[in-house]
Design a protein around this nucleic acid. Structure first.
Lengths: 191, 191
DNA sequence: CCGTCAATATACCGATCTGTATAGTGAGCG
DNA sequence: CGCTCACTATACAGATCGGTATATTGACGG
């Protein structure tokens, strides 16, 4: 990845997230990156590919960001669930309040053949697997319900945060998640 | 609202929801509606206004649809909460699996001055008020937590449904909502 | 019967869109 | 030295974008 390509990815990431994918043209991306369109097309080949690389980069950053938060959290599964919500809040503090970039991109990309599609669904599947794995540590026979429930709270928190319909939805979701995992943990301990 | 304007609104609603707002041009809307662009601009004045009217129409239809489901539900608040999730599933069965049209539109409209903005946030505020009112009937002193919790589950269910990351997220959300309202009702009864 | 009005058909405007073509510059490297 | 390669500058192509102009038709109501 050449320096110019990195600047394109940085500019595209900022502009796509803040204004939406279809609302941002390649001329603007190139100008903001301080790069000619020729260079952009030499490196990426098409706008579609810039979009896909933007989402893949964002996915990679989020997984690393979350990984650092999980590494700093206590080893107990319940605490790690809460660490996911803490990471989500810290991420949105850093990266802006427009909700989940994957969900926003999915709203603009209807074609399932678009190269961005597997990246979006891949991240969501990965997050569901993470929640389900943590749920299995807390209540092995209830993971099929607890995992999706945590996923729903997480997705709901991100979209509610983006819509700004009520204050601090991620904190609300974290509290609900805490109640769910403690209840599931207590029920598993009684068995 | 003239017959041609109604056809424009029908075509715009279908195309905007299926393909996204920026991906659909006014020429296509006019062609699909069997209407000339002149007529479209005589009736709506701008594409922005077509977008706003599309969302206002969708909002109105959803509230009426939900109202019919609530009218058919038992009067108990807990049952009415579940009826909201049942309505969401029936709605998505009828109107397509691409998630919430308001959330998708919000992902494409970054400008807060866009005429569609108050319609989107208005529907979400209305839904939160509905959930909070129902929560207050179930547990008067816990409505400030139960209402947003139900909202998070509902929003999460819609986005998860759109992303199709796991099967039947609305049913999952309904089950979680049932657990929440029964727990809150039991706690309120013990006091 | 005449004016209003919703609608048609068609052509056009300037701007912007993604993408390409041509020519040239400068640094690193064998 | 000479080749490669990342990059710049500029211009352009063809399509589509939102929006407008002109002229016409047909129905309906006072």
């Amino acid at each position: 990845m050449t320096p110019a390509a990195l600047r394109v990815l940085e500019a595209a990431g900022r502009l796509f997230y803040e204004r939406g994918i279809h609302a941002v043209g390649v001329d603007l991306i190139a100008a903001e990156a301080g790069v000619t369109k020729k260079t952009l097309y030499d490196r990426f080949g098409s706008k579609e590919q810039v979009v896909a690389d933007y989402l893949a980069d964002r996915d990679e950053r989020w997984r690393a960001f979350l990984g650092r938060h999980l590494a700093a959290a206590p080893p107990a599964a319940a605490a790690r669930v809460l660490a996911v919500f803490d990471a989500a809040r810290a991420w949105s503090d850093e990266h802006g309040p427009r909700g989940c970039g994957m969900v926003n991109a999915h709203a603009e990309i209807s074609d399932p053949a678009h190269p961005a599609h597997p990246i979006i669904t891949g991240q969501k599947r990965w997050m569901l697997a993470l929640f389900t794995d943590l749920a299995a540590e807390i209540a092995p026979d209830g993971a099929g319900r607890l995992g999706p429930a945590l996923m729903l709270l997480h997705e709901g928190a991100l979209v509610a945060h983006g819509l700004a319909v009520f204050p601090d939805p991620i904190r609300h979701a974290r509290e609900q998640a805490r109640a769910l995992v403690t209840a599931a943990g207590d029920a598993a301990a009684r068995r």
